[in-house]
Design a protein around this nucleic acid. Structure first.
Lengths: 136, 136
DNA sequence: CAGCATCCCTCCGGATACTG
DNA sequence: CAGTATCCGGAGGGATGCTG
């Protein structure tokens, strides 16, 4: 739960951690990463990092997500301990989603990547365009 | 290409960046993230961050990747400008893959998340187990 | 309001066989 | 050695309709 700067191990060590566990498919690091690789996970984490939201608010906030995927992604995030789900027995009922401490901790790590993407997406787009032009 | 500490904007700003672009499906940040969300992308980036590797070396390094996915993932990473592919016209030919400057820059951001996963995967596993027990 | 159920389809990714 | 080509099953994900 420590949000301070993490002393990074060598790159080799990071790679080795991703291949640990004997059976590679059981590697816990890859397992965690896999859970965040869905189409909507990082976007919903970014939204909830801002503030707690109710189900319908998230729908309006992310208009192009289907109701099915919103339900399922929130379920998965809750299952992995990133998101807290609280039901208010009002009438009609309302459900609020918020980040847990684990979720906030994870998002701080994720945020580096999102920030990088924001700063460098034009370089990536450019590389893609150049590459496609060369292959044409 | 600056690898120094990035001054993080507010969480709200990060979320807004992920919903920019009018048409959400055209949001460049989500576009970049999407390209890294494949099953093998981060693992191969971690391997190549360690040192350049040839095709066959990567195969042996990651035994449970199919040859098809190795080819395709390397192709995609190259297309997005993260990986450089160099052919040596030996006989038989050998091809070496290495990270570009853009790739190294990106990996530094990605590494935070990998590091977090390594440090906290037991917490995630635990949350998952607890959750599943409660639902049973 | 906040979902579950159902149908359906795309495409990710694995297995196998073949080339320069 | 470093790939391409094909086939194929299954998970991911969208649209629609119904419930407490």
């Amino acid at each position: 739960m420590d949000s301070s700067i993490v002393k990074l191990r060598s790159k080799l060590e990071v790679y080795k951690a991703m291949t640990d566990g004997g059976n590679l498919s059981d590697c816990p690091v890859r397992d965690v990463i896999q859970g965040l690789s869905g189409k909507w996970s990082s976007l919903l984490m970014a939204a909830l990092a801002e503030q707690p939201y109710r189900f319908g608010e998230l729908r309006r906030l992310v208009p192009d997500i289907s109701q099915r995927m919103l339900t399922q992604t929130l379920y998965d995030l809750q299952r992995d301990g990133y998101v807290h789900r609280e039901v208010f027995p009002t009438k009609p009922p309302s459900v609020e989603y918020s980040l847990t401490d684990l979720g906030r901790s994870m998002f701080e790590a994720l945020q580096h990547l999102l920030q990088w993407a924001e700063n460098n997406h034009d370089a990536v787009r450019g590389a893609r365009a150049t590459f496609d032009a060369g292959q044409a």
